[in-house]
Simulated scan of single mutants.
Amino acid sequence: MKIGLLTCEKLPELTLADQQLIPELAKHNIIAKAVIWNDKKIDWNDFDYLIFRNTWDYFEKETEFNLWLDQIEKLEIKTLNAIEIIKQNKHKFYLQEMEKQGITILPTIFIDKKTNLNLTEILPKHWAKAVIKPAFSGGAYLTSVFDASAIEETNDEYTKIAEEKELLLQEFMPEIQTLGETSFIFFNKKFSHAINKKPIDGDFRVQSQFGGKYNLIQPSQELIDKAQKVVNTFQDKLLYARVDGIVIDTELHLMEIECIEPDLYFELSEGALQRFVASIIELIQ
């Protein structure tokens, strides 16, 4: 059995955490290799499975990534998660469907591509502050937070972007700065561990590259059940899913469910790497 662990040019050998997958899989007689998703020299038919791990530039290369997904699908290479899940999950308008299925999401307005963006018309009057970002994005890419009083400046900044990309406009929740964001990690649809991420003072971005601090937490069973409900909206198998949200008064407000290439925080939860590998084996046998 040969598995390609998909990564990007910035991380040709994977992250340090994901590098540990290679010796761990070798214990089960599985050869795993880091492969850059857009490396033209790779023969994808060499692999029995591909696993999306550190493809952290896909949103910067939208057209190329979409064409590559089509290529892998035509070659009938098996992937974890499945290509159809990747295609759905890479574009955050899936949150509309989540809401229709009874999931509580952050207050969100979905903006189709347009040549005459007018945020003043779109922004609800009771929103004092908002976050705007492309629907096809990750890692705070082209993401801004703005006060309603500065809406014209933001409109000017995003008018060109709106011509090329769909956008999400979300009410800014100040709790992100105090309570932080909570990530619930699931392997093969079973809860594994949870991480709380808090931004540095004065920022809203929780990513570590912006100084965010991460801590392993043990959420209540009630919260785990709410995250499980999000995962269960997927009919197909899932090797992994990361449910990201803000917990306010025991209610989970979904920000996104990551099924493409999320950090799974193996290093913060003892046994998480082994649980992940066990889930790979369950799904490929």
Results as ranks from 00 to 15, higher is better:
residue 1 M to P: 03
residue 5 L to E: 02
residue 6 L to W: 00
residue 7 T to E: 07
residue 9 E to F: 07
residue 9 E to N: 14
residue 10 K to N: 14
residue 12 P to T: 03
residue 13 E to A: 14
residue 18 D to I: 01
residue 23 P to Q: 05
residue 25 L to Q: 06
residue 28 H to E: 14
residue 29 N to E: 13
residue 36 I to W: 12
residue 36 I to H: 13
residue 37 W to M: 02
residue 38 N to T: 12
residue 45 N to C: 11
residue 49 Y to S: 05
residue 49 Y to E: 06
residue 53 R to H: 07
residue 54 N to S: 14
residue 59 F to T: 00
residue 63 T to G: 04
residue 64 E to P: 08
residue 64 E to T: 12
residue 65 F to L: 00
residue 68 W to R: 10
residue 69 L to G: 04
residue 81 N to G: 12
residue 84 E to A: 07
residue 89 N to H: 06
residue 94 Y to I: 07
residue 96 Q to K: 15
residue 100 K to W: 00
residue 102 G to T: 01
residue 106 L to K: 10
residue 107 P to R: 03
residue 109 I to S: 12
residue 111 I to F: 01
residue 117 L to S: 13
residue 119 L to Q: 04
residue 122 I to Q: 13
residue 132 I to C: 02
residue 142 L to W: 02
residue 143 T to F: 04
residue 144 S to F: 11
residue 146 F to M: 07
residue 147 D to V: 07
residue 151 I to Q: 08
residue 156 D to L: 09
residue 158 Y to K: 10
residue 160 K to F: 14
residue 164 E to F: 11
residue 167 L to G: 00
residue 170 Q to R: 03
residue 172 F to T: 03
residue 173 M to L: 15
residue 175 E to K: 11
residue 175 E to I: 01
residue 176 I to P: 03
residue 176 I to T: 09
residue 183 S to M: 06
residue 185 I to M: 07
residue 185 I to A: 06
residue 187 F to R: 10
residue 194 A to D: 02
residue 202 G to A: 10
residue 203 D to I: 04
residue 204 F to I: 03
residue 206 V to D: 02
residue 207 Q to V: 07
residue 208 S to C: 13
residue 209 Q to H: 15
residue 209 Q to N: 15
residue 210 F to M: 08
residue 214 Y to R: 13
residue 215 N to V: 03
residue 223 L to S: 04
residue 227 A to D: 09
residue 228 Q to K: 15
residue 230 V to Q: 06
residue 233 T to F: 12
residue 235 Q to L: 11
residue 236 D to T: 12
residue 243 V to S: 06
residue 244 D to R: 00
residue 245 G to E: 01
residue 248 I to D: 10
residue 249 D to F: 08
residue 255 M to C: 10
residue 256 E to F: 00
residue 261 E to M: 08
residue 263 D to L: 13
residue 263 D to C: 12
residue 269 S to G: 07
residue 270 E to G: 09
residue 275 R to L: 09
residue 276 F to C: 05
residue 279 S to A: 14
residue 282 E to Q: 13
residue 282 E to H: 11
residue 282 E to R: 12
residue 282 E to D: 12
residue 283 L to Y: 06
residue 284 I to D: 00
